[in-house]
Amino acid sequence: MSQDSNPFLTFIQINREELIIKWEEKMKNVDDQKVSNVISDQVYTNICNEYINILLQYFRKPDDEINSKISEFSQRVVQLGWSLRFISTSLQEMSKLLFELMTVENTDEEKMTLVWAFDKWIAPINSEVLYHYASSWERTVSLQKIALQELSAPLIPVFDNITVMPLVGTIDTERAKRIMENLLQGVVKHRAEVVLIDITGVPVVDTMVAHHIIQASEAVRLVGAKCLLVGIRPEIAQTIVNLGIDLSQVITKNSLQKGIESALEMTNRQIVSLEE
């Protein structure tokens, strides 16, 4: 691919500053304010410059190195929080702008020739940018999911042989499995004698959730520890009664404080006030 056969290389080099200024304005016009309100003008300028650098490098020598540049560019866009719709529309606006500036005095026939040139030179780059954006976004979401899973069922030692698992949010089957795994591993790791499952932050306790909790309690008992269910609010207690859920095999307390007091008693300790 020779530079001479590329109609964009010289034009972009000569009109680079004008392209960037006008493209920035178009990007801000298509923005729904979620991006521009928190991103400075300099960031827009940097992104525009980086994209144009990618175009020029591809026009000169479309080798494997360009994929690395596109990947870095797309990852930066993802980190900025730009949506797929926003970046896709922005690339379209850039293509329209470039076409308009290059065909100000062209005939219809010359414009059609340039349309074919766009398909050959610009479209592949934009497709690669969107492909790498999607890949980078998927990796980011995957890492976030792993991080959330690690935080979804933490087991925290609060006293010797006493641990607490605070649960917040809904409990589905996948999360219930993680709760079970963390409980069993944590009991062994921390040599826990008593485990408190705190459901203060769980909005709904239905039959499925109760079933998972009972299973977790039984599993903890089988590895030699006792399990307390704490944080049962009045509305949760009423739901449990209405659903006919049997928690008779599980020790329950209405608050974490009461649960810790009971756990201390089970381990032959108690909290006492020291008189001055």
Rank of each mutant, 00 (worst) to 15 (best):
I47R: 06
Y58I: 14
V168R: 02
L9Y: 15
F8T: 09
A176Y: 02
A153E: 07
V205M: 05
Q249D: 06
D246Y: 01
T170A: 13
I171K: 05
L222Q: 03
F73G: 00
T163D: 11
Y131G: 00
A123C: 03
H190G: 06
V230S: 14
T103P: 01
Q257C: 04
H212W: 06
G81E: 12
E128N: 06
K120Q: 13
K34I: 07
I14V: 15
T103M: 04
F118P: 00
V188T: 15
V205C: 12
Q270F: 05
S88D: 03
L229K: 02
V77P: 02
T140G: 01
G201R: 11
I21N: 15
E181V: 07
H212E: 12
S5T: 13
V223R: 00
M27P: 01
V158R: 01
Q238A: 10
K26P: 03
N46T: 10
E265A: 12
S273H: 14
D172L: 08
I245S: 05
K226W: 04
I179N: 04
R269L: 06
R233E: 09
G169Q: 06
M266G: 08
Q3P: 02
I213G: 06
V30L: 10
A263L: 06
D41K: 10
V202H: 07
E65V: 11
V204G: 04
Q92D: 10
T170S: 13
L229H: 05
V158L: 04
V220Q: 02
F86L: 15
D160C: 08
K96D: 13
R233S: 13
D31F: 07
V187G: 05
N53W: 02
V205Q: 04
T170E: 13
Q42N: 14
N37V: 14
W23H: 07
L167M: 09
I52N: 09
Q257F: 12
A147S: 13
G81I: 02
I125M: 03
F8Q: 06
I162R: 02
S88Y: 02
T207F: 08
Q185E: 15
D4Q: 13
L97I: 08
Y133L: 00
S5Y: 04
N106W: 02
I39S: 07
